[in-house]
Computed example of a mutant assay.
Amino acid sequence: MRTPLKAAAAVAASALALTTLTACGGDSASGSGGGKVKIMVGGLDKVIYLPAMLTERLGYFKAEGLDVELLTEPAGVQAETALVSGDVQGTVGFYDHTLDLQVKGKQVESVVQFSQAPGEVEIVSNEAAGDLTSAKDFKGRKLGVTGIGSSTDFLTKYLAVSSGVKTSEFTPVAVGAGQTFISAMEQGSIQGGMTTDPTVATILDKGLGKVLIDMRTPEGSQQALGGLYPSSSLYMQTEWVNGHKETVQKLANAFVKTLRWMSTHSAAEIAAKMPSDYAQGGGQELYVKAIESTLPMFTKDGVMPEDGPETVERVLKAFNPNLQNAEVDLAKTYTTEFVKSAG
């Protein structure tokens, strides 16, 4: 549990980040290869987005001559909004937002694909575990998601619909991640929900809940979603990418170096590079365990997994009325141009 002092510090830091974002929203990388790049992350301390901070901690941004500022929002949908509004040049969030935005008239593409599985876990409280044994039991439940319109919201709806439960038959509740998610479960505001490590590891360690559906591995993604599900990525507005190719290539170089580094180092070695407060009060040993559980989701080269975009399209079209009757040009939702040229 965070102390009041730590909680106050976290709030202050968040407010400062947002103030900085608002004040500097008009800035962007100048020319094709330099300037400051602001990247909004849908939760910097989430293990699924670990490559963002790890790249900074390893010094790879600076090695590429980049001035990168990492900002954070608790949910991917808020990070998406910051990108579309032009407040940041890039977002580290789920690839599925690129499809959702395309049918809304926004051209956004994944330029580095961090993962091949969602890294998400549907977890249920101990009190509800007896009756909530599969997605078929979502009916009538209040289920936590990071935010309405977030990827956790998307995936929860798919799991429900694919199990015969209508999206109108359960209630998604925006509870964020970390301590806010844990508190909602402890207070009974939600009976279950979708979240990531280190929140999952903390809940299990405290004996507050049980894993219902585990999508932290390619095998788990295959079982729950019928295929690999590319999720965490660096995505950017296509127009900005085309106008700043040298900068984007440097970003790809830095992130691909990080993914390669992760593939040859242990969870303990990775954890040792991260800020100490990312353990969310669970201690270093629990944080290492959280990283170890999630590591299988990451790619080693930043390349979009084969057939991954088709899986994402199928999942979204199962419940999203905006996509059900829309034609999605998947080729425009990602590019491998930069990762395949990464040194």
Rank of each mutant, 00 (worst) to 15 (best):
T258C: 09
S263N: 13
I182L: 01
G281I: 10
Q191P: 05
S233Y: 02
L295C: 05
A318E: 10
G308D: 02
H265Y: 03
R314N: 14
T294V: 00
V88K: 03
A342S: 11
E246G: 13
V112D: 01
D329A: 12
E127I: 07
D277E: 15
P305C: 05
S232T: 10
G164D: 14
V200T: 11
D67F: 01
F61T: 03
T3L: 07
E292W: 07
A201R: 03
D87F: 08
P172V: 05
T196S: 14
E306M: 11
E219W: 05
S183H: 00
K250V: 04
I203A: 00
Y235L: 13
V41L: 06
T299D: 00
A290E: 02
Q284F: 05
Q89V: 03
A15G: 00
V175S: 06
A160K: 03
E239N: 14
G176M: 01
Q107E: 15
A174K: 07
G90A: 15
F154Y: 14
L212H: 01
M215Q: 14
E127W: 02
G282V: 02
S232Q: 09
G42I: 00
A135R: 06
L251H: 09
M236G: 01
H265K: 04
T167N: 12
Q107L: 06
Q116P: 00
Y49D: 13
S115A: 15
C24F: 10
C24Q: 14
Q222W: 03
T195F: 11
T180G: 01
D96I: 08
E120W: 01
Y158C: 01
V103K: 11
L159K: 12
Q179V: 07
D301S: 06
M304F: 06
K38S: 14
A135T: 08
S341W: 04
L21K: 07
Q249V: 02
G209E: 02
G119T: 06
V11F: 08
S151V: 11
F298T: 07
V103F: 10
V11T: 07
S276T: 13
V124M: 04
A331G: 15
A117T: 06
K340Q: 15
Q223S: 15
L316W: 06
A63S: 15
K300M: 08
L66M: 02
D329K: 12
G140F: 09
P198E: 10
Q107K: 12
V241S: 03
L50S: 10
